[in-house]
Write a protein that binds this DNA or RNA. Structure first.
Lengths: 341, 341
DNA sequence: TAAAAGTGATAAAACGTTTTATCAAAAATG
DNA sequence: CATTTTTGATAAAACGTTTTATCACTTTTA
């Protein structure tokens, strides 16, 4: 089976036919007699013929590759989605080429430029501020794009993500209904629409419960501080706000870091401090007394995104620019937010 | 900047030169005068020329794409490695196309066949029993391959992975030195060399400490049982072995599941049962009293693997088939294995 | 039975590059 | 000044496909 790669031309020679005939047979086009068809198919199979994707790509302009641009591939959230996307794509014969941006705009630009060297048929991208032009460019060049986990507020580009505002609203509302009064917010100092929407959800929930927002209860953790430093500043924040009886973390990463901080401060959850984190995670279910979380529907998000993209690449016409899915999340209630006596 | 893609031919027309000249200038070959060179470079830059990778690939047989075949991209271990691999590859202008096998041999075969349709220049693969032929085929076709996280005992293929035997040995030895007598092993019923090496490490450590192996203390969790079922069977195993005072989990996944089981059984760690898990994980550092783990050097593994691959693809000759890195791990001692009084 | 329609197969162009071989003009050599 | 060498540029082939247009031959139609 150790075969030098065989080409359509070789098969033609082997079967005393022409290149065209072989191509037609292999693609089920044209009109070729049963016998010749069989002969060609046999020879192709016996020699393990595989079309040269480069040649096909050059000729047809189709690569059967999807570009997946995410913030970071590690981590449970994108990891889970990548898996779903890969599986679905494979069913239609697409492969995934993936790149991460690490929330770095220049990296994002580079990655998109690279991918756009006619080597990718469509994109799933987690957007960041600053990438608007680049992504519009892709669309202008007729490449389907689906945004995931974020969106551009002023642009009509199909996207699918969790209902950030509603999820945060529900979480904070849940805390208030459970009797917590002074609810803090810990978020990241990143210019991401997701975080803004979550913050809005927090504020709107307070408002809906007639609670005045206290600016001192909101903490924005600077980006790219190292972990120990970050934990220390979160600890400092928690200690400063003595009256705070619950805290809402806007991301998975912040939540686990918060957990570490609370642990180091030797505070009891939920007695001294209740907490909720965005994004479920194995830690949150295991760590006593269990941390209440907002579980993102990763499967639905990923599935919708890839379906949307495949539909577009499958030649579906129609204007997709208005397709904007906001998928509801699920609040997983655990011990960290028991109703206050 | 919304440019229809421009080709080398267009540039030639725009500058009143020939295709060859443009190609030479763009690739720094041939002998072209300063002025023409400048003119072409200017036009190319202004129009945002990007070479068509398909055409280049077809002509040169080089795709500048690396295939990464892993068990599953989710999860901290492969996630972390994927990141490193992607970053290093990018420095040399390579992109990553990734596929997961989910420990399914057929899927692995399919994936490799797909990638080998002349669309990938080299491979990093986590091997599984049954893929020997397929991978040897790649090598026979002159494609560089580096195995990661596993290897084929009977084949000379470059690979890099943690020192599984030594790591497991150290872990179990650590337990024995800390005063634990009856040490259990929980592993997965998968035919993976990694797990076998770890199991050997466990057994050899017992032997080295003159302890007779007790078959009843070894539990192989059947593959693909669902999580709840798995937890229940682990619980049953733990309850059955009353004399067992410590347990060694051979993977991350098993470790967290074990943690859940122990939690449900309301056993105290380490008083009722000490534990060590292979593969560090955020849960293990957070979960009280802290779980002792074997921390795999993901960075070194990934870095070595990609370096090895890039070197081969960079035209490095020489026989690499004997390159076999076994990188030592680090035992992170935490509260789950305190010295027995 | 002559014209029209259908059948089975193919030649050749095209996709966008890279690269070899070639060529004319200019410069250097004897 | 005739010859060789160097310089700067290019034509054309090739990579492996897909696809359009064409062709010879058979069958159907009028």
């Amino acid at each position: 089976m150790i075969n030098k790669k065989i080409s359509i031309k070789d098969i033609a020679k082997l079967t005393n036919t022409s290149i065209t005939t072989v191509s037609f047979v292999l693609n089920g086009k044209g009109r070729i007699s049963k016998e010749i068809t069989k002969k060609i198919l046999d020879v192709a199979a016996k020699n393990g013929y595989e079309p040269n994707r480069m040649a096909v790509g050059l000729r047809t302009g189709v690569s059967k590759v999807i570009g997946l641009v995410v913030e970071t591939i590690g981590g449970p959230f994108f990891g889970a989605m990548a898996k779903v996307i890969e599986e679905e794509a494979e069913k239609e014969g697409y492969r995934i080429i993936y790149c991460s941006t690490n929330n770095n705009i220049q990296k994002g630009k580079d990655v998109i430029r690279m991918l756009s060297q006619q080597l990718v048929d469509g994109y799933i991208v987690t957007p960041m501020k600053g990438l608007e032009k680049d992504i519009q460019n892709l669309i202008a060049n007729e490449k389907p794009v689906v945004l995931i986990d974020g969106y551009f507020p002023d642009l009509d580009i199909p996207h699918v993500l969790v209902d950030n505002h509603g999820s945060a609203f529900n979480a904070v509302d849940h805390l208030l209904k459970a009797g917590y009064k002074k609810i803090g917010l810990i978020t990241a100092d990143l210019d991401l629409i997701q975080l803004q929407d979550r913050t809005r959800g927090y504020k709107d929930a307070l408002k809906a419960n007639n609670i005045k927002e206290d600016k001192k209860l909101v903490f924005k953790l600077p980006f790219d501080t190292d972990k120990d430093k970050a934990i220390n500043s979160v600890k400092a924040f928690i200690q400063q706000q003595k009256q705070m009886d619950a805290v809402f973390f806007t991301t998975n990463y912040l939540g686990t870091m918060g957990l570490e901080s609370i642990k180091q401060l030797e505070l009891n959850i939920p007695h001294d401090l209740a907490m909720i984190s965005f994004d479920d995670n194995e830690i949150f279910s295991l760590y006593p007394p269990g941390i209440t979380t907002i579980q993102q529907p990763t499967y639905e998000i990923a599935k919708s995104a890839i379906d949307l993209l495949l539909a577009q690449m499958g030649g579906e016409k129609g204007d997709v620019s208005k397709i904007k899915y906001q998928i509801p999340s699920k609040l997983i209630e655990r011990g960290s937010t028991v109703t206050k006596k």
